[in-house]
Simulated assay, not measured.
Amino acid sequence: MPIRDVLQLGHPLLRAVAQPVPDPTTPDVAALVQDLTDTVAHWRETTGYGRAIAAPQIGELQRVILLRLPGREAWPLINPSIIDRSPETMVVWDACLSFLSIFLQVERHEWITVRYQDLAGNWHETYAGREDDLAELLQHEIDHLDGILTLDRMVDVKSICSREEFERQFKADSPYGR
């Protein structure tokens, strides 16, 4: 499948709300998941960044996200939604393939429970906590499905830094340094 262009900050589709996928078992959904898999793998190989991607980032307004955690199989989540979240929050560094030159700090819930469908249409629930930084990653990607960007979650404008400065000062202690 092709590697797709990732829409960049300012593109109007990044602010649009994605539509639910009526049938996750269709060939079109499987093809979209493959495109997401190939695209995020390409970004990881060429930039060193890219743990996940949401369908709107490649111009597809469908509620599909793809996680590609190091050392694990690609994990598609169809129609994901957060059904529970911790009252406790944490401040973490965040970035996005749609504006990889900018890093900033955001506030996220320490843990969440996500309900989603797989490619066979089966429903699942998964708990995501600090392990593998899964809670913050899923919150970031699910936000994309609602037209919310990490910039909208910024805790302080003073936390914005360039990719180069982030790598020099903060990368080693962040999820991006693992």
Rank of each mutant, 00 (worst) to 15 (best):
S101R: 00
T150F: 02
V106K: 04
N122W: 00
F170P: 00
P175F: 01
H124P: 01
A128F: 12
L119A: 06
W123F: 13
A95Y: 00
V155T: 14
Q169Y: 12
L149F: 04
L145W: 07
M90W: 07
R85G: 03
C161W: 05
Y127V: 11
E107K: 12
S159G: 12
I148E: 12
H140G: 11
C96I: 04
S86M: 06
D173F: 05
R115F: 00
W111M: 05
R163M: 08
L100N: 12
L151C: 10
A120F: 03
H144Y: 04
T89N: 09
V157P: 03
M154N: 08
V91I: 14
C161Y: 01
E88I: 05
I142P: 00
Y116F: 13
A135C: 04
I112A: 03
Q117S: 13
P87H: 07
Q105C: 10
L145H: 04
I148H: 12
K158V: 08
E141P: 02
L145M: 07
F103E: 00
E107Y: 04
M90E: 15
E110T: 15
M154G: 01
E165D: 15
T113M: 05
L151W: 04
S101V: 01
H109P: 02
H140K: 10
R163Q: 13
D118A: 09
R168D: 10
Q169R: 15
D146Y: 15
E141Q: 10
I142F: 03
D132H: 11
S174P: 09
D152E: 12
E110P: 00
E141L: 06
L151G: 08
V155M: 10
E88G: 05
T150W: 01
V91G: 06
H144E: 05
V92K: 11
S86Q: 08
Y116H: 06
E136K: 04
L138F: 07
T89R: 14
E107F: 04
V91L: 07
D118H: 11
E131H: 03
S98Q: 05
A135N: 02
S159E: 08
Q169C: 04
R85W: 15
V155C: 07
F166H: 11
L151H: 08
I102W: 02
S162Q: 07
P87S: 14
H140D: 07
L138A: 11
F99H: 13
Y176R: 11
E131V: 01
S162A: 13
S159W: 13
E164S: 11
V155Y: 10
E125D: 12
A95C: 14
T150R: 00
H109C: 08
I112C: 06
G177S: 09
D173E: 13
D143T: 07
M154V: 15
M90Q: 14
E131N: 03
E125M: 02
F99Q: 12
S98N: 06
G129M: 00
S174M: 13
C96K: 05
V114W: 01
L134P: 02
G129R: 03
Y176E: 06
E110C: 11
Y176C: 06
L100S: 10
E141K: 00
F170H: 15
G177H: 06
Q117F: 12
S174Y: 14
T150P: 00
W93C: 03
S174W: 15
E88V: 03
E131G: 00
T126K: 09
C96Q: 11
T150S: 14
F166R: 10
G177P: 05
E136Y: 00
H109L: 04
R85A: 14
Y176V: 11
E136V: 02
R168E: 14
R168I: 10
W111P: 07
